[in-house]
Design a protein around this nucleic acid. Structure first.
Lengths: 117, 117
DNA sequence: GTGACATATCCCTATATGGGTATGTATTGT
DNA sequence: ACAATACATACCCATATAGGGATATGTCAC
């Protein structure tokens, strides 16, 4: 098998730089496809494809406004990513503990407690 | 161009379910490749490949322990993912504000302020 | 030499992403 | 009814790469 489909989960959807860009743009408020096309500098079909992916994983939603389709960020989906990463937060904060251990080691050396020699 | 390389950034590295699994396993402490092979049920070369990717983006580190290589999670790298997602936290919390608006609406109705009818 | 891995191949299939074109469709305007 | 706008989709093409399977070999430690 190849890599999991980008539409399978939020992680894959967000792995694409352009899609992250779309998300960032939509964070500023609803946008029509045309506006996104202009801001991304991609073709309309390409943008629509990315929007489709984001739609599949429910990271965005659409509503009609006349002949326009306004896309809106559904940040709720980003929450799982945030929470998944957050699970490891204690581990990167642990670094401070390690730093402290190092400091303790240095102190011991200063006190001449080095058992090595 | 094809899809971005999985080694290009942390987002792509984490987009792979098995690699997330590796990360989760390593969150429990250092593991040798052999242990990971057993726990993941993949072949040794496959596991080594995934570890290589995680190593490239510095999500893990290695140290030798006799003939074993112990992999350790470098959670620091997950921080960027956490922080990227966190930028949108206000947007999904905004939902509570919306909920509050709805509550306000309901209150008005109870007070008989409905201008409709 | 053996154990534990890293790497390199070769194979194969699935899929992504980009480019471009064409067409379907809904909405608005005349 | 007909045209135009704004998109969604469906095609075409082409390249890159993933990720799995399996095998083979290099390397370092014991």
């Amino acid at each position: 098998m190849a890599r999991a489909a980008t539409t399978s989960d939020v992680f894959n959807a967000v792995a694409e730089p352009r899609r992250r860009q779309v998300i960032e743009l939509l964070a500023g408020g609803e946008r029509s496809v045309g506006e996104l096309v202009a801001e991304l500098g991609s073709s309309q079909p390409q943008v629509s494809k990315h929007l489709r992916v984001l739609l599949e994983v429910e990271l965005v939603s659409v509503r009609r406004e006349g002949r326009h389709r306004l896309y809106r960020l559904e940040a709720e989906g980003l929450r799982q990513i945030h929470e998944w990463a957050q699970r490891f937060e204690p581990l990167w904060q642990e670094r401070f503990d390690l730093l402290e251990e190092v400091v303790q080691e240095l102190k011991k050396e200063e006190e001449g407690v080095s058992s090595d020699g």
